[in-house]
């Protein structure tokens, strides 16, 4: 029982060095950037933006636990709220674009040029 209690009071941050979390976040962020550059479907680009936001969230949580400071986790809440708002508005814009062009290809949006 005592051992279980001891394990519960541990965290991965005491076993895994913080550098691995930095590396994981960097890889996740790069995948998000790759998605934005690689795809032309606007919905997939939104999803890649979500991936990048989540990479940053993961890093914030890792450092918050590492430094035992709850401010980082509160930041993550705000990022989640902003991400939810961004997705709602972005998808609404996408719907109206689709209604006008019958496509979600972002290259069609270059017609917006004057």
């Amino acid at each position: 029982m005592e051992r279980v209690r001891e394990r519960l009071n541990m965290s991965a941050i005491q076993i895994i060095p913080i550098n691995w979390y930095i590396l994981l976040s960097a890889v996740l962020f790069t995948i998000g950037v790759l998605g934005v550059l690689f795809r032309r479907n606007a919905i997939i680009i939104f999803m890649s933006v979500e991936l990048m936001l989540n990479a940053v969230n993961l890093l914030l949580v890792a450092f918050s636990t590492y430094l035992s400071d709850s401010a980082g986790q509160v930041f993550v809440f705000f990022i989640m709220a902003v991400a939810a708002a961004e997705v709602a508005v972005g998808l609404a814009i996408l719907m109206s674009v689709y209604r006008n062009t019958m496509s979600t290809d972002i290259n069609i949006l270059s017609k917006l040029k004057g």
Partner: peptide
């Protein structure tokens, strides 16, 4: 990873908000 990092509440909120709300929104639009 959040659970591993002792951020249990954040893990629950993350699942509810992202897997529950945002992904349903994406699927709905698709």
């Amino acid at each position: 990873h959040y659970v591993l990092l002792n951020a249990q509440f954040l893990a629950a909120v993350h699942i509810i908000v992202y897997a529950g709300a945002i992904m349903v929104l994406f699927l709905f639009v698709i």
